[in-house]
Design a protein around this nucleic acid. Sequence first.
DNA 1: CCGATGTTTTGATACGGAGCGAAACGTTCT
DNA 2: AGAACGTTTCGCTCCGTATCAAAACATCGG
Lengths: 236, 236
Amino acid sequence: MRDATSLNRYQLAEVGALLAEPARAAMLLSLSDGTSRPAGELARAAGVGAATASAHLKRLLEGGLLALHVQGRHRYYRLADDDVAAMLEAMAMPRTSGASLRPAGGGPAVRRARTCYRHLAGQLGVAFCDAMLARGYLHAASEGLQLLPAGEEVLVEAGLAVEGVHQLSRLHGRGCLDWTERRLHIGGPLGVAMTAAMLDAGWLRRASQGRALVPSADGLRRLAGLGVRLGEAALR
Amino acid sequence: MRDATSLNRYQLAEVGALLAEPARAAMLLSLSDGTSRPAGELARAAGVGAATASAHLKRLLEGGLLALHVQGRHRYYRLADDDVAAMLEAMAMPRTSGASLRPAGGGPAVRRARTCYRHLAGQLGVAFCDAMLARGYLHAASEGLQLLPAGEEVLVEAGLAVEGVHQLSRLHGRGCLDWTERRLHIGGPLGVAMTAAMLDAGWLRRASQGRALVPSADGLRRLAGLGVRLGEAALR
DNA sequence: CCGATGTTTTGATACGGAGCGAAACGTTCT
DNA sequence: AGAACGTTTCGCTCCGTATCAAAACATCGG
């Protein structure tokens, strides 16, 4: 939560060192879609032996960039939280903004809607956040984003049934800067839950590969009913 | 401008390697307030010899993280652009969010108003951005933020004279996520120009040290006239 | 209980790069 | 022109760590 000046040189260098090895960078990138993967698969993805991969994973774990879930003889690694995913996205900026002034890289589908870690991002994510704010369904405060009761009611009416967690407005939402759109979308537990609900309800489906999300015709209709308007950029 | 998946392992590792050395990290941090500093001063700040510092600065320059301005026998280094500053701020997140849930680090003055690279950030920066959007003086689109003619007129009336660049609405504004407030403030050339104008007009002055900005009584009055309301968090 | 599979630990090697002193280069001042 | 200063280049040493093979460990299947 601090700004860069409160980070000392050693803390910054420590994070940098974790990213500095191509093998570790490859592991982090292959986990940046929010999936969990076992050590062997990450070793193959990074192009190193199992022993080497294990050492790298240990460092990333101790450095706080990864989380671990043990299941039998498999050990599943995933990004520690969405702050790590946001950091990875932020690091893409200085490398590419000078090279081109195009508003975004990747295919049109990825620009339009995708997962940022595990919540909705891209033009659709930004438009959804805007619409919720504009209609007073979402409140932005210093502490974060909060879904108001009116907003939860509207979402439930629209068909977004959140099973276990009926109290969507209890979840903490966090503004997450969309690096392709340069605007805020909804992240944090709230963003994850709403995105999961949209997937469950068939408003969105995951592309066969990559991080793109494809909205269904029904999903677009429902979203339009909530005031979500995709700009002209999304229509071409 | 691309997202993390379009960044390959080698590009990410290269950026990481540049940050991985405490001496280089110290140089970047001491430049993160937007100032330009000669090589010798950066060597002292990093605690290394002139020869070592020169090698580090060469790497940072070639890596695209720094820019160089030669003046006589002095060579002034600065951050290449505000994308680099934003990246440094983003890297502070994963290291501290788990450690504490406090809304922000630093002193109250820094939380209230400070420079983010060279534009206004903190509670005042966020509130100013909100007010400009709410009153229709600022337009947010996928391409970025744009000051509308009505907004420019109001600012000029309030006493913000921008000398060279009278066409404030021609400048490109960029949403910049405030990591202490988790909300958007105005960055990019537009943000830099408006902040410089506020400093010129005496609405703000720089703290004697650090990145804090101190609003004057007159400045607060003028800002209030524009609809800027500091939340309860800023008043304690 | 034993072999197969997934993962980590250990030991050994090799490479990159961070550091400094000395020297070279360029600029400013007298 | 010569001296002083800021900066970079060169040559060298030394430490950290990435890598793999082999062995140890843990879990699952029969």
